[in-house]
């Protein structure tokens, strides 16, 4: 989307670089594009702005009718409530954020450690029925989580994994490994196999050759893939709400959802928690934005 905005607003020589197929009409069309994109941006961003406003309003302003866009008293109390319990100890929400970080971080790490070598193997070696295997791996991602959550719940109960962080880590890893294999296979395909051949003749084993000469070239791809996996695990809601119940295991999405309902809802707290929840994703996406675009266009789309 960022690309089309740039193209739409840029004029002069830059516009001439647009390939003919993507270029319909003249300048008038470009104004229309800008208008549409602006409208879209407003629609998309309004809830976000509303959330941010609510998180810094005092509770009486939150309920004010008509709503105040400007001129309300700014407060940071809700953010304090996110992290600190009324008695001064750690709040349930801050524990949930920590749980989310642990679960998302460890499952992403596991998915990367398992998925990258698998992707390398699928790219480099003649594996029997490779296409079928890859399709099977991908097909596990077609399934909506709700479909499998009941059987997994029953399995986890037998295994004693219900209401444990390990349980969530395992299920998120299982969901992220196929994705990692698919993304990374595209990146590995882009790295010529000859580097490894040369390294093996230099005297390295195949694994050393991969480690020394191929892996460093894959770092951007790994970063992009890991961010996607991290965001998936961080955002995941269905498994989290079904498979966990206690406050010291719960991740942030069900914990925040749990704030809504009951007799009164502290909307300021909900909004502040949501802002805190959204921040890491934004930061990560920003850090790897270059690789994200490269990852989407080069890694996943090819072949």
């Amino acid at each position: 989307m960022a690309v089309s905005v740039d193209e739409a607003v840029s004029t002069g020589p830059a516009r001439d670089r647009t390939p003919p197929a993507r270029r319909f009409g003249g300048r008038g069309r470009s104004v229309l594009e800008v208008a549409l994109l602006t409208a879209l941006a407003v629609v998309m961003l309004f809830p976000v702005l509303w959330m941010i406003e609510t998180s810094i309003k005092e509770n009486r302003d939150v309920y004010a009718v008509p709503a105040e866009f400007f001129g309300f008293t700014v407060t940071m109390d809700h953010f304090k409530d996110v992290f600190v319990a009324p008695d001064g100890g750690r709040s349930d929400l801050s524990v949930a954020f920590l749980n989310s970080a642990v679960v998302a971080g460890v499952s992403t790490l596991l998915a990367t450690v398992l998925g990258v070598p698998a992707a390398w193997a699928y790219s480099r070696f003649a594996v029997r029925a490779k296409k079928d295997q890859l399709f099977f791996i991908l097909s596990t991602r077609f399934m909506p989580p709700v479909v499998v959550v009941i059987p997994i719940f029953l399995m986890y109960r037998q295994l004693g994994l219900i209401d444990s962080k390990l349980g969530l880590i395992l299920i998120y890893t299982a969901f992220n490994v196929p994705f990692t294999i698919w993304m990374m296979k595209g990146f590995v395909d882009e790295v010529p196999a000859e580097y490894e051949d040369a390294a093996m003749l230099d005297g390295y084993t195949r694994l050393q050759a991969f480690w020394r000469y191929t892996l460093p070239l894959l770092v951007p791809g790994i970063a992009a893939t890991a961010v996607f996996a991290l965001i998936f695990s961080w955002n995941e809601f269905v498994f989290a709400i079904f498979l966990t119940s206690s406050d010291d295991v719960r991740t942030a999405p069900p914990a925040i959802a749990g704030l809504i309902g009951g007799t009164t809802t502290d909307w300021g707290l909900v909004a502040a928690a949501s802002v805190v929840f959204a921040l890491p994703v934004l930061v990560f996406a920003y850090l790897v934005r270059k690789h994200l675009i490269a990852g989407v266009t080069l890694g996943a789309v090819r072949r």
Binding site: P192, E194, Y195, D197, A198, A199, L201, Y213, P216, L217
Partner: peptide
């Protein structure tokens, strides 16, 4: 071995 396409390590 000298490879036809060199296969020099790019980094």
């Amino acid at each position: 071995m000298v490879f036809q396409n060199y296969a020099l390590y790019p980094r």
